[in-house]
Design a binder for these strands. Structure first.
Lengths: 341, 341
DNA sequence: TTGAAAGCGTTACCAG
DNA sequence: CTGGTAACGCTTTCAA
């Protein structure tokens, strides 16, 4: 069963390969009409023959000739992370609708791996790249830019990169909303734990938190504890112990992993929420509804983040200028902030 | 900055394009020597020149000419599922080591989407496909087989498919281990909830459970409740209520989603584990350690499943016959089975 | 609206 | 060991 080529279709339909190529590439406009310089009758016949013969375009050939490949690459920092897994699905779905197939490669929070991943997908002629940057990943991203391959930054911003699209969460709003929710309950000693990761979202969330504290004239109470990604467990235990002793009333946890770690520590130490400590967590997870007390948390608009990033990227692939889109977070209320003082 | 081709390298190194092609494709054997019919000196020079010029292979051209593409496709039923997200990462890592880039496309538990995904990756000339089949996905998979593209079934088996590799969990053992753990605690009324999904793993897990019940002369107590994927919430509540009234002592939950659903229902109804109901859950999740009582659960060897599936696939791509690999599950003990009767 | 022909960068074949 | 050259299947001028 040999492969059907454009030539077979042309011969069978009694037209030239050029015509077939035109027809196969034509996009349908809103009327369902193909917008290409081909007689409607002919086009229809070609389509029919292609269908009958079971013609499948050979992307390798098309890519070689045209330089385009109808593929995009998605490089999250960790695909096994729930947030990116969810977003990846949305991206894939949207990309598929637009006729793109998706390459995946995760960077594992390492600039080197990001570089390797970008090399690999560039060698495969991807038309564009959606990436959640890692600390120090600027150079890797610049390689793509140098190769004139459009890039969209997802979820995390990086300064000093010209001509990249961006689809980000309004991280400052997320921080502000979280803190304000707590402050409006009458709590005064609201603190935060964060990572020393060099990515933009965390400092922004912190800025939002600080702003809210300031607006409520409680800036003297603002305090942010830092820990390192991957070694948070012991740090967090110390932080929580000390904070409870000091009479801290609430914590804002700006990532899922910090939220999970804090909940684990609280469970271990027998610290209850919201009475001993009110909590606002981040991102979606079953743990928030299954924890002894349900947990209030910030949710990111996964679907929109995914879809927008594809839209911005495909628009850039078509030669339009880059866009920068900021999406708003939402709050899901749980028992962990159900308190009044 | 125009693209460097094999011809540029050939000219610069003063050799033919053929030589360059040989060198670029040569695999290094264990001694670090390139195994190709090229003078070591020449090879070294070519490599050096390629490096200096910044030569990058054009996979589209190679793919067009050779029919191979150095890409494999991974099609889980749902990438946002924690189990597949974890496994995907392992697959990607292993594939990368072997020089393959991976395409992702999820089937969303739909045979149609699986068909579309397979069409798409086939059009991109993937060298092989790793797929977690969905109910009724046989035909889609057969399309790949017809195109002589090797396929490895991951996690779920499908009967009647010739020449496909398989990397599966020993599902029967998982069922047996779970039930036996409960029975050895002296519990006698051990039941199970399962889905009416037409995939192999669930019936196998059920078979293991039934076998254990039989071995302990408790087959008259064996009972499996069925619910539908996506509509489990209300069913499970009814099942649990009724079971507790009937004095059921334990449940084996053969998937993560069932485990999460049951824990949610128990929390809602105020049913405690292990005293009111002992529980064995499935797959890894933070919820098992964060639930009021930690939950005993079966874990699949993610890393091995991912790596083996890549190994089996690449071996098949090189023309070797398909393999069938069955991996053993493990149990993580928690408080939900910490009981003796 | 249609067609002929020229490549795109590799690999594969065959000859030396 | 080395080199010439013909494909691979498509898109893209250019000309009719």
């Amino acid at each position: 069963m040999k492969r059907i080529t454009i030539r077979d279709v042309a011969r069978e339909a009694g037209v030239s390969v050029t015509l077939v190529s035109f027809v196969m590439n034509a996009k349908r406009d809103k009327d369902g009409k193909l917008d290409c310089p081909v007689n409607a009758e002919t086009a229809k016949r070609v389509l029919q023959v292609a269908q009958d013969l079971g013609y499948k375009r050979n992307f390798a050939a098309a890519s070689l000739r045209s330089g385009r490949s109808n593929t995009i690459a998605v490089i999250p920092n960790d695909i096994s992370n729930k947030f990116f897994a969810g977003i990846s699905r949305c991206i894939e779905e949207k990309a598929d609708k637009k006729g793109y197939t998706v390459f995946f490669a995760s960077s594992e929070e390492s600039a080197d791996r990001l570089g390797a991943a970008i090399d690999a997908v560039l060698a495969h002629n991807v038309d564009g790249i959606i990436v959640a940057p890692v600390t120090g990943g600027d150079d890797a991203i610049r390689k793509a830019l140098d190769a004139k391959v459009p890039v969209v930054l997802l979820d995390r911003d990086v300064d000093g990169l010209q001509g990249v699209g961006k689809v980000l969460l309004d991280d400052e709003a997320a921080g502000r909303m979280s803190a304000e929710l707590l402050l409006e309950k009458g709590l005064k000693k609201v603190e935060m734990i964060s990572y020393t990761l060099g990515i933009s979202s965390l400092p922004e969330r912190e800025a939002g938190y600080r702003k809210a504290m300031m607006d409520h004239d409680l800036y003297q109470n603002a305090k942010v504890h830092y820990t390192t990604y991957g070694k948070a467990d012991s740090d967090v235990e110390t932080i929580i112990r000390e904070a409870v002793d000091r009479g801290v009333e609430a914590f804002f946890l700006p990532t899922y992993s910090l939220s999970a770690t804090v909940l684990a520590v609280m469970k271990k130490l027998g610290i209850r929420t919201p009475d001993d400590l009110a909590i606002v967590g981040f991102d979606e997870s079953d743990i928030y509804s299954l924890y002894a007390t349900t947990v209030t948390h910030i949710v990111q608009p996964l679907k929109e983040l995914g879809e927008k990033s594809v839209e911005v990227l495909t628009s850039m692939i078509q030669g339009n200028p880059e866009e920068r889109i900021i999406l708003k977070p939402a709050i899901i209320y749980g028992g962990s902030t159900d308190i009044n003082k």
